[in-house]
């Protein structure tokens, strides 16, 4: 990989210095010059994509094909039975519902609270707002392990364990630091005069936040919602700690326990369960890839 990176720019210039070869030779030459590069790119794509292709084809195989067949072989038929088993016997349907019930309320709370706080910290003028913003920033650094035990105690004593509330509450709190910080950045781009002008007509500042501020940053809100969705949907630590019964498992916890409950030799249903797990984020990425890439990397730089 390294040598191609180096040689390619020089190689393009090279023909100018030599006597002009014929068109055919030139095309061959260009093909040969580009060949190592193409091989490198093809190799990168195979390494990235093939495991997922393998995952999908494996989810259609029968158990007999797993035990006796070659790992690279394609399934003889498209066999949906694995999916049926993973969904019903493997409870993936239930886990998916639990995940949705925990993630989307948390996401809504993160967006509403985070956007309002970002507005209050960036557009509003008051003493101490930088200190509060800094306090939120600290939260990005803190490892989840640092808050698990006290929260577990509180949820246990208040009787919230046994419901999905511990997940919703904890996700909301963990999502807030990055959201508040990024929303503050988005509001920074809007001149304060916009909000001042709207209040001249007698609208309260809270009203102008909802009517003017919220719509103006909706692009940013959408990006943050996407980023937070991936973080929360893919979370394992919080979900594993606060789901004490199997009815409450999120899709990640359910998948983690899948082999244990289903038997280690049930390959087909396991691959189908992984596919079900991957499907949601994959579709979201296929539709919105540019925004997801921008959002996730922006979150990293800010954090």
């Amino acid at each position: 990989m390294t040598s191609t990176t180096v040689s390619a720019p020089g190689a393009v210039k090279a023909p100018e210095r030599r006597p002009r070869p014929s068109a055919g030779a030139r095309r061959l030459r260009r093909f040969l010059v580009k060949l190592p590069l193409n091989i490198v790119v093809a190799l990168i794509l195979v390494i990235t994509i093939y495991p997922l292709f393998w995952l999908v084809i494996s989810s259609f195989k029968t158990n007999d094909e797993f035990i006796n067949g070659d790992a690279f072989a394609l399934p003889s038929t498209i066999n949906w039975q694995n999916y049926v088993e993973a969904w019903t016997t493997g409870n993936m349907g239930q886990y998916l519902t639990n995940s949705a019930l925990a993630v989307f309320p948390a996401l809504a709370l993160i967006i509403v609270f985070g956007t309002a706080a970002g507005f209050a910290l960036e557009v509003m003028v008051w003493k101490g707002r930088n200190a509060v913003l800094l306090a939120f920033l600290v939260g990005i650094m803190v490892p989840g392990q640092m808050i698990l035990l006290p929260l577990f105690t509180v949820y246990f004593q208040t009787g919230l364990s046994g419901t999905l509330w511990p997940l919703i509450i904890t996700y909301t709190a963990i999502g807030l630091p990055l959201t508040v910080f990024m929303m503050a950045t988005f509001f920074r781009a809007i001149p304060r005069e916009v909000f001042e002008a709207s209040t001249l007509d007698g609208a309260s500042i809270i009203r102008s936040f909802f009517v003017i501020g919220f719509p103006m940053v909706r692009n940013g809100i959408f990006t943050i919602a996407l980023v937070q969705f991936f973080f929360i949907w893919n979370d394992l630590l919080i979900a594993l700690t606060f789901t004490n019964s199997s009815d409450l498992r999120t899709i990640q916890v359910g998948l983690l326990n899948f082999t244990g409950e289903f038997g280690a030799t049930q390959y087909g249903p396991l691959f189908a369960a992984i596919c079900i797990n991957v499907f949601g984020t994959l579709v979201l990425y296929l539709v919105l890839n540019q925004r997801v890439m921008k959002g996730l990397t922006a979150g990293a730089v800010k954090g």
């Binding site: 709370l109 706080a117 209050a120 509003m124 003028v125 509060v132 006290p150 929260l151 509450i169 809270i206």
Partner: peptide, 26 residues
């Protein structure tokens, strides 16, 4: 208008409360 204490409390309050109770206190 932009320094309205009540508005700041309403906008910032929920986020700060959740964050304090579920992150800082723990």
């Amino acid at each position: 208008v932009l320094g309205d204490k009540r508005a700041i409390a309403i906008l910032l309050g929920p986020a700060l409360l959740v964050y304090t109770l579920v992150m800082l206190v723990p």
